[in-house]
């Protein structure tokens, strides 16, 4: 479904991502983990067509993101790290605007449905500038799901949320297993382990480990030793790649 083929992204003299090769299957819940500045957000932005690769290519269902950007973007629901919303608009106005960009049919009905889903129906006509971070995140989720995308890309979705809202969100993502292809980018290893079938560890722009959480643990463990935790696996790969 999603393929990164030797993808490199450079910003002037900084290489944010180096030769990333990765395949994510349809219906899979995949997590990309890594320390700050590892290139997770860059990888996600490249998939969503927000950035263009310096070399290599990203394909979605066989379509090149750089060439068929508009078609690919219709298949993706993107939740950026920061819930960057237009402050002077109300949730309803914002969703209407994005519905017009995505060409959503029966936009009004879909907006009602999504606002009810994220529990914001009573705030539908209140300016976003008055909302808390959790409320903004809910609106962002509604925006990402607006066009019922096949792929959902979530960049640090639970960051800064209260434990209850974070749990609700995790439950929601967990419920998508098998229905949607999800690429989750997170700092929280337990979240990745709990939600995802496979994960990749990025460090300094390189994919340093890839596999199921238990596979990665087993790989590091070895005979006669206790199975390491995912934190230990993460620490091993991110420390090891430093040289």
């Amino acid at each position: 479904m999603i393929r990164f083929e030797r993808v490199t992204k450079r910003f002037y003299n900084v290489t944010a991502l180096r030769e990333l090769t990765l395949t994510i299957e349809r219906g899979e819940l995949f997590a990309l983990v890594g320390p700050n500045g590892a290139g997770k957000t860059t990888a996600i932005r490249l998939l969503c067509g927000v950035l263009k690769p310096t070399s290599g290519r990203v394909t979605v269902a066989g379509m090149d993101v750089a060439r068929d950007g508009v078609r690919v973007k219709r298949m993706i629901g993107y939740l950026p790290e920061e819930p960057s919303l237009y402050e002077r608009m109300t949730p309803r106005q914002l969703l209407r605007f994005f519905a017009s960009l995505y060409g959503v049919r029966d936009a009004e009905g879909r907006i009602e449905e999504l606002l009810a889903l994220v529990g914001m129906l009573d705030k539908a006509d209140v300016r976003i500038s008055t909302f808390s971070k959790g409320m903004r995140q809910r609106i962002s989720i509604a925006r990402a799901l607006l066009h019922d995308p096949e792929i959902l890309v979530l960049d640090e979705p639970t960051m800064g949320l209260d434990p209850l809202t974070a749990k609700e969100l995790r439950d929601f993502v967990s419920g998508l297993r098998g229905k949607k292809t999800v690429l989750l980018c997170t700092h929280y290893l337990d979240e990745a382990e709990q939600l995802c079938t496979r994960l990749g560890i990025l460090h300094r722009g390189r994919l340093v480990a890839l596999g199921r959480p238990e596979e990665l643990k087993a790989e590091l463990g070895g005979a006669g030793r206790d199975s390491p935790t995912l934190e230990e696996v993460f620490a091993h790969y991110t420390r090891g790649s430093r040289g």
Binding site: R45, C48, G49, V50, G69, V70, R71, K73, R74, I76, Y78, P80, E82, S84, L85, Y86, F98, L101, Y102, G103, R143
Partner: peptide, 10 residues
């Protein structure tokens, strides 16, 4: 940073 949402739209 609202530009990111626009760039992600089709």
């Amino acid at each position: 940073r609202t530009i990111e949402s626009l760039l992600g739209a089709p």
